[in-house]
Write a protein that binds this DNA or RNA. Structure first.
Lengths: 328, 328
DNA sequence: AGGACTTATGCTCATATGTAGCATAAGCCG
DNA sequence: CGGCTTATGCTACATATGAGCATAAGTCCT
């Protein structure tokens, strides 16, 4: 850094007397018999859980190592795959110290017993309307209806814009559901006051204490269909993570970061479905997996299928993934 | 934020006596007759330019507004489309103050005359090997050769891994070039010591002063084919931006953020080619554009084509872009 | 005016890729 | 043994992508 620049920066920071806190947050995803899971740190006094997180420290050589360190310190869980998600830094209320939060996505392998950490929660408890594996969930229908009211309540000028956003995010009348638009949907619900955080962040009567899960129905601005809230803007981070992950599994072999050493093709499909929240066509999924050359048969069979035994596969990490390969 | 958490954070930051500087950086892209351009702030005393940037300040309500404000303050250029790119925060040398840099990508419309800012530079001056519009550039051939030497020089254990990375980034022997892997390529060159920044960041004899462009040939670790360096890690940010943009134009209508109000289909194609760095098949590009419904004819014709007049089109922003629409 | 040249525009074809349905195989359990 | 389960393989179809060629409608030169 040139002297000029360093001086300018220091001045900039000091001239306005601002000290900025830099935080690291992790959305840690795993999968077990119970389905897709997310790792949460202990719930605060208000009963609202939060993502593992902590401030950036001097010892952290890189941001990523800082994230690993905080997650392990808070939950005992070592991390495998880690990737940066997004940096949040909007000013909250005036007068408060500013925080910049750098959010990461992490994936860990292994069954529930093999994972050291406690604090794993069902992913879709926080996003019930995102799970379409058993068909259109009731939560999505309710929210769509609530959003329709929100659209109609608007002044005519903004009505059209709202309608378009709702349709883009939730799909037109039962038409195709785009599972990747998780963040878009969350932000729409937030804006429409349909998630608990909307009311909380507006500082509605310090009513925060009552919002601790599905029981909060009927609260002003809350809605059970929209799922359990998390502390601060952590649910926004989680929405960002899910959206990114749902997009990424389509063009990068990240699925294997969640798999055990040996697995059947249907195991793989179940995880893909759990993350994307939609059902997949079995033969097509198989063909795709087999054509990519990312996996190979181990020669053994799984007998716990309930029907015909399935071939067991393993991941071939040596394959450099020549795919269309968008990197980032 | 709960009291517990706030206390913990403050302690965390203070216990280690670390003050973190948070910087905002912008990669601002435009397009004119001369081709794709990037906006640079004035060159420092060492002759190395840098991206518009400055510290996050208390007045900035959001990170994005902070970026807009800094770019306009430093270059006079107001920004249109802005999107977060990546946050860099690895510790540089021990003992120095830590900086977290949040990089943004921005696109601005208009010809060279319409744009207020000075400081626009040719994008590919910084990445000569990324411009394949006139076929495989010489720079890419030279770098491939240099990387081959770097691969062979390695210990046998790492040789295979290096070879695979080089082939994934640069394509096997003249085979398909994946234009999106800009960052992967830059990082490989950095690691191999083929860009000026590698030597500079290792602190090689304070030789920084001599690195100011193509003239630096023969410097230890430098290479004219790898392009002009920028200050700090700004070329890494630029590589990140180009990669992201090249991927994004394929599934989101960002191209129009660079276009004037009226344009021909070939104008559009020229910009797509300039950004992606490869030639496109004209009839196919037309078909794609016309099938997406994102543009409409204005009814007028352009007579400056040199041949048959071309229909003029305009962008239809009212179309909500129902495409597969990965959001982010 | 006529021909050469330029660019725009439209069409066809072969090849991937994605979607959906059906048939068969091979285990289980009563 | 028949009925259940799940695994596995194949085919038909729609759609997207990539490449080539023919024609249209201007300019410019002679």
């Amino acid at each position: 850094m040139s002297k000029v620049e360093a001086a300018e920066w220091t001045m900039g920071a000091h001239a306005h007397g601002q000290t900025v806190g830099v935080g690291l947050n992790a959305v840690v995803i795993a999968f077990d018999e119970a389905g897709p899971r997310v790792l949460l740190a202990n719930a605060g006094e208000d009963g609202v859980s939060s993502l593992p997180s902590g401030p950036l420290e001097a010892e952290h050589r890189t941001l990523e190592s800082g994230v690993r360190s905080w997650v392990e310190r808070q939950t005992g869980q070592p991390l495998g795959f880690v990737e940066q998600l997004y940096t949040f830094g909007d000013k909250s209320r005036p007068g408060t110290r500013r925080f910049v939060s750098i959010a990461y996505l992490a994936l860990v392998r292994g069954t529930a017993e093999e994972r050291p950490a406690a604090g794993w929660a069902d992913l879709y408890v926080h996003f019930p309307y995102e799970d379409w594996r058993e068909g259109p969930p009731q939560a999505a229908c309710e929210l769509r209806a609530a959003l329709a009211r929100w659209t109609l309540d608007a002044a005519p000028a903004v009505r059209r814009s709202r309608l378009e956003r709702v349709e883009a995010a939730f799909g037109r009348e039962g038409a195709r559901w785009n599972e990747e638009r998780v963040l878009e949907r969350y932000e729409l619900l937030y804006e429409a006051g349909l998630v608990a955080e909307s009311a909380r962040d507006r500082g509605v009567g310090e009513a925060d204490h009552d919002i601790r899960g599905p029981g909060a129905a009927g609260e002003p601005g809350a809605n059970p269909a929209s799922g359990w809230p998390l502390a601060l803007d952590h649910r926004r981070m989680l929405a960002t993570a899910i959206g990114r992950l749902r997009a990424k599994i389509k063009y990068r072999p990240v699925l294997f970061e969640l798999m055990p050493d040996e697995f059947t093709l249907f195991d793989l499909q179940r995880i893909a479905e759990a993350l994307s929240g939609v059902r997949l066509h079995k033969p097509n999924f198989r063909r795709l997996m087999e054509s990519q050359g990312l996996i190979e048969e181990t020669g053994r069979l799984s007998v716990h299928t309930g029907g015909r035994p399935a071939k067991l596969f393993r991941y071939r990490p040596e394959i450099t993934m020549e795919r269309p390969g968008k990197d980032e």
